[in-house]
Structures are given as C-alpha cells and as structure tokens.
C-alpha cells in the first residue's frame, strides 16, 4: 500500500491558541478518510497545512512524498470551505478559467459531472443558490485527475438535495485504484457510508481513529453515534 499523506506530531499555534496539538494522521492509496469533529476542532487547519496554505508550527508532514507548497497544488485537488467563486463569472467561464491552471484537468469528465449535477454553463455565479455553488465547487474538484482529493467541509451549509448530489458525485468519481480522498466534516450522518477510515479530532488532538466498519463492530454503533458519544 502506497502512503500518500503522512503527518507526525503536527502542531499549529495561532498566538496562544492551539489549533493542532500533535496530530498523527495517514492517508494510504485507495481509501476515503474522514476527519470528523465539531467546529473549531482543527479539521480545516489540518487540510490547509496539507495543501500548503498554512504553515505548521511544529511536527512533520509529507504529501505525495513532498513538503506541502506551491508545487504540490499541481498534483492535489483541494476544495476550500470558502466561497471563492467569482460572482461576476458564469459557470462555463469558471470551469475554463480553472482548467487553464491544471494539466490534469479532464474536460470530458468535467462535462459529465456538470450535467449530472444539473448545472448550466450559462448561469451566472451570482444567480446560483448556496447549494448550487457547493455543487459547482465539487464539480471543479473532481474535474481533475489526481491521486489525492482534499475536501474541506464539502457539505457544510448546503441544502439536503445538493448534499445528496454532492455525495453521489464523490461516489461516482472516486476511483480507489487511482486515488484517495481526505475530507473534513461535522455532518457525520451524511458521510456514514462513504468513509473507509475516520479520525475524530477534538480541540486539535486525535480522540480516536480507525476503520469505519471495525469501529462499528467494536462499539456496536454507527459512526454518527460514536461521534455523539465522544463529543456529547
């Protein structure tokens, strides 16, 4: 098994506040890993460090065999939790504009996903609902053929119909033989059947991690119930 991401004792401090307190986490090839935890537990910070837009205070991290940085963004597809889409653009323009940055952009796949998600290339971003913008961000992330997808809160603040569509795209486009996904979310119920492995974060530390089906057996409970017990 190929290791795509490996973090050891990763810490991040913002002034006196600890965002991460020594996190060990790995992503192997062909798995979907979920970083789960309430808001402020350090999920987004971890992903931002992994893609290289935030520098760790301590510890080590290697992604696809390199230190996170500008070079890595060419090989990893990162979906930000922020609403970064330019509102004056049209859907088609955003796609073309994003495609121009990446050699791994797959136009045929992009077309297929856009169609599946019911997005119209001529729609203005400013006319899209939040759910539709979430769909578009997902489409952009999966239009690239990469080994590693990092999805930061792909479902947060999105209506149920769009959440369901976004999950369908993840399942349809995920190819275990070629890629892995690391996603963060606090909406555990939605991703219950999607995750191979889960990492529960709390206040910047790993509370528990393991294979999802093994955790269900051990605890005689769903990942969602374990989440509620851990944070309740």
């Amino acid at each position: 098994m190929n290791r795509l991401l490996r973090a050891r004792g990763l810490t991040k401090r913002y002034g006196r506040k600890h965002a991460l307190r020594g996190v060990d986490l790995e992503v192997n090839s062909g798995e979907v890993v979920g970083i789960l935890g309430p808001n402020g537990s350090g999920k987004s910070t971890f992903l931002k460090i992994a893609i290289g837009i935030v520098r760790p205070t301590g510890g080590e991290i290697e992604v696809l065999g390199q230190r996170p940085g500008a070079g890595l963004r060419k090989h990893v597809s990162y979906m930000s939790e922020n609403d970064y889409l330019y509102r004056w653009m049209r859907v088609g323009e955003i796609l073309e504009w994003t495609a121009s940055f990446y050699d791994d952009w797959n136009d045929a796949k992009s077309q297929e996903i856009i169609e599946f998600l019911g997005l119209d290339r001529d729609s203005k971003i400013s006319s899209l609902s939040r759910g539709m913008r979430g769909r578009l961000k997902t489409a952009i992330a999966f239009s690239r053929d990469v080994q590693l997808y990092l999805l930061d809160e792909p479902l947060s603040g999105i209506d149920p119909a769009s959440r369901s569509k976004i999950l369908d795209v993840i399942i349809r486009e995920y190819r275990p033989e070629n890629s892995s996904i690391l996603l963060s979310t606090h909406l555990v119920m939605d991703v219950e059947n999607l995750l191979d492995r889960v990492v529960f974060l709390s206040d910047g530390s790993v509370l528990l991690q393991g294979n999802a089906d093994e955790l269900r057996s051990q605890h005689d409970a769903s990942i969602n119930s374990i989440f509620i017990q851990l944070y309740g």
Partner: peptide
C-alpha cells in the same frame, strides 16, 4: 453497486 447503494466502492469490494 456502490452507486446503487450509495456506499464507498471499497465497502462493496470487501
């Protein structure tokens, strides 16, 4: 089957 059942393909493989 993964798409039909809406589960991770690795789960179906297992």
């Amino acid at each position: 089957l993964a798409i039909m059942l809406r589960v991770n393909p690795n789960t179906v493989q297992r």
